[in-house]
Nucleic acid binder design. Structure first.
Lengths: 126, 126
DNA sequence: CGGGATCCCTTGCGATACTG
DNA sequence: CAGTATCGCAAGGGATCCCG
């Protein structure tokens, strides 16, 4: 077998690149918002809806279902009247929090820098 | 002004939630792969293409343009024949690396757990 | 309160072909 | 080598209405 080309970057990770898995899981528009909003303990549906500006009922439901499917969120139904449903993070998702917080922190620190870069790029292209 | 509802989770972050900005920037299908592949120093177009399995020429170009626009990647053209173009991370992107690596590490550690959760969820729904 | 069902439009993205 | 151009589909996601 031939050796890898010397100037090629390593293929993302040893033994199979799971980068796309991350993006598929966390890259949907609302996943990160929901995971962060749910990190402060069990949260109800409506509370989530209020704390995430701009999200539609439909996308909140869909994203919650996907997160539940992936084992990141636990859905608990209290059969009361009116119904009460609580969402909370699994231990696996709690572990993810640190990375997510780092990511959001980075975005906030460099928000202005990015905006400037965009403006310059767009102006230059006009 | 009324106080926030006590049981509402905090709105993602103090002073404006930039969570969606992060996701928009990093959440596109190939961004993370490219950023990681480019972290080992200046990389040429073709080298990137080889090290990211499954990416199309079109998406590589488009994603690189977006990353350049956001100030995450610098594009350097050497006017030789044949042409030679190198891509490298900006300091801002280098700072992002740590968070990205953490994210990928998390995905790899929990890959099996997630697959299991999915299988159980799907079986239960059938 | 916590959703599900539909409609519909925008976009991401792959495939393919052409170029300096 | 390092792209650009065009086509076309399928998924993502918003709006709206309905329901137990």
């Amino acid at each position: 077998m031939s050796a890898l080309w010397p100037d090629d970057p390593p293929p993302c990770a040893p033994s199979g690149c799971s980068v796309e898995e991350v993006v598929d899981r966390v890259g949907s528009k609302w996943s990160v918002s929901i995971l962060i909003a749910a990190s402060s303990g069990p949260v109800r549906f409506t509370a989530l809806e209020r704390s995430i500006p701009g999200i539609s009922r439909r996308m909140l439901t869909l994203t919650l279902r996907n997160l539940e499917r992936d084992g990141l969120i636990v859905r608990t139904v209290f059969p009361t009247m009116p119904p009460r449903v609580e969402y909370s993070l699994t231990p696996m998702a709690a572990e993810l929090q640190a990375a997510l917080v780092a990511l959001v922190g980075w975005a906030q620190r460099h928000r202005g820098e990015i905006a400037d870069a965009r403006a310059r790029y767009d102006e230059r292209a006009e």
